[in-house]
Design a protein around this nucleic acid. Structure first.
Ligand code: NAD
Ligand code: NAD
Lengths: 210, 210
DNA sequence: CTAACCTTGTGAATTTTATAACAAGTTAAA
DNA sequence: TTTAACTTGTTATAAAATTCACAAGGTTAG
């Protein structure tokens, strides 16, 4: 079908499909039907076929989808079948956990530089990377080919961090701080809000009890 | 209005409203209109009024919403105006970052127990808590009044961790591991997937460039 | 007190998203 | 080769969420 506008919910589900498909590979499963995949992802099978149809035709009628091929197709569709260089701002508890988490690299997201404004941290080395003052962000970004920014500062510093990133010509931002940030409209921002999810389970549990 | 079924998206937005409203408090703003709040949250003002209408009438016509009151009302609506005791399974990079993050407590989510199956970690103390073997989960859960579980194990251990939690009578789960888990249908599960958000920005950046 | 002005809450209209249904393509067995 | 059993891609249908539009309620200034 190859369509124009793709629902945000579709992107979220594609991420789930990849997750489940990768686990199927581990289990040695090579082909899967939309119905089976749907069960594993807790969605409707039409939903899966519709989501994939936005990007092309990846299945074989009467057979299903070849798992490895489908993973590749989805990754191409999302634009993640390549390396993305990232900068991280805010090397605290969470920032360090992310830096130490090598799954990001395995999936093509390389954190190439880490920034913090704390004088005690600047100059220290972590995971083979020197922690640098955010004022150097602009230089390093172009030098290292950094396109994405990850914000892990306290919430009241998130806007400042965002400003640094924008100034450095970054193309997209993932913000872990619980604060909205203002950036030019052509720069996409994704918010990772742990509390959103905690609130959501708490709400569902409360509903169930009432 | 007080309605029956509440869209999941509404819950997510309520979390955003709280986030923004709390920052308004910090700035000393006491009253806000749905239009202003909408701008701060990047949503439509009708959306806000509609979201709130699911739970009651919290505003004053001609005036707007009293910020502190609205926070309280939303918290009551979500069932988070009370303490929720949590157990964390998997004390690795991410688990430790969460344990050290005291914002959870400030918002009523207390991590009362931490579990790990690594013999090197069991018995160690962290943030005033002893790391315990997951086999003790059941005892501790009832003893400490734990209702929610947080999974931060590797993905191939997530199901096992979930089984422990379910067996311990936990009422809801937040899963940070990139793997779907199967639990009885009355137990809500929320997935926090960092890659989902990375994929999403990458996709949006790619779109913008094409 | 009146008039001009705001802002909420909500039914109706619109848009978007999800599900169902099925024609078309594929396989395998008889 | 034919038939029966599958499964996709896509159109049609249904459901859900968002936005619009405005009456109803409230405030402020003169
Ligand atoms: N740690 C968690 O588990 C967790 C969970 C949910 C949300 N968060 C959010 O993630 C963010 C980071 O949390 P954390 O626990 O790592 O906090 P933290 O205080 O440990 O780390 C914050 C780091 O940011 C640095 N920083 C401050 N201002 C900066 C600036 N302008 N430029 C660059 N660096 C700056 C600080 O020096 C510090 O090293 C916070 O916004 C927090 O609310 C954290
Ligand atoms: N660290 C990050 O920044 C990050 C980012 C995104 C996602 N994640 C996900 O979060 C999870 C944890 O990541 P991490 O970096 O902390 O990994 P980690 O390897 O540092 O920690 C995992 C911990 O879980 C423990 N564990 C393993 N099996 C267990 C079991 N059955 N019961 C109890 N404990 C068990 C291990 O002993 C270890 O301490 C992983 O699934 C990872 O994919 C982490």
């Amino acid at each position: 079908m190859k369509s124009e506008h793709i629902p945000k919910a579709t992107i979220g589900r594609l991420a789930v499909y990849i997750q489940v498909l990768e686990n199927l590979i581990r289990d040695g499963i090579e082909v899967i039907s939309s119905e089976k995949l749907a069960q594993a992802c807790s969605v409707n099978s039409s939903q899966i076929r519709k989501d994939l149809a936005y990007f092309g035709e990846f299945g074989v009628r009467g057979v299903g989808y070849y798992v490895q091929e489908l993973i590749t197709s989805i990754r191409e569709s999302l634009g993640i079948n390549r390396v993305w260089n990232c900068a991280l701002i805010g090397v605290g508890n969470l920032g360090m956990a992310l830096l130490r988490h090598h799954d990001f690299e395995r999936r093509g997201f390389f954190i190439k530089a880490a920034f913090d404004c704390d004088p005690d941290k600047i100059g220290k080395e972590l995971e083979g990377m020197e922690i640098v003052c955010p004022t150097h962000l602009k230089d390093q970004a172009s030098e290292l080919g950094i396109e994405l920014g990850i914000i892990t500062t306290p919430p009241d510093r998130a806007q400042r961090a965002a400003n640094h990133l924008v100034d450095a010509g970054i193309k997209g931002i993932v913000n872990f701080a619980p604060a909205r940030i203002n950036v030019p409209p052509h720069i996409p921002v994704e918010y990772v809000d742990f509390f959103d999810h905690l609130y959501s389970v708490a709400f569902q549990v409360t509903l169930g009890n009432s």
